[in-house]
């Protein structure tokens, strides 16, 4: 990506992000967010994050790796379980990375 394009992406991305944060500070009590919008927006994090995670974990191994033993998919499932039980970022990170390293080691033995 050329430098001007890169900066265009950074600035446009930043501007949109700032406007999202600033939106209701700017309106500051003049208007309430319609309840319907709050209901819709609450589904943004789960839908978007899942749409990033699932292909990110699964797609790279689809063609190359052993479909029955994919360390990244198994480690991600372990991390999901830890995140579900502990709600702790550090624990999710530690168990997820630990599981991946262990499984990658096991893979070399197979």
């Amino acid at each position: 990506m050329s430098l001007p394009t890169l900066w265009f992406v950074i600035l446009a991305g930043s501007l949109g992000t700032f406007l999202a944060r600033y939106s209701f500070f700017w309106l500051s009590g003049r208007k309430a967010l319609p309840e319907e919008w709050i209901r819709i927006l609450r589904f943004v994090p789960p839908a978007v994050l899942a749409a990033l995670i699932v292909p990110g974990v699964i797609a790279p191994g689809l063609e190359t790796e052993n479909p029955l033993f994919n360390p990244r998919i198994i480690a991600a499932l372990i991390a999901i379980t830890i995140a579900w039980k502990s709600k702790n970022v550090m624990a999710t990170f530690a168990f997820g990375m630990g599981a991946l390293w262990l499984l990658q080691y096991v893979e070399t033995l197979l």
Binding site: P45, P46, G56, A76, A79, A83, W84, K87, N88
Partner: peptide
Amino acid sequence: WLCFIAIMIPG
């Protein structure tokens, strides 16, 4: 992906 999982799952 672990970061994203840690953010998404508790929600």
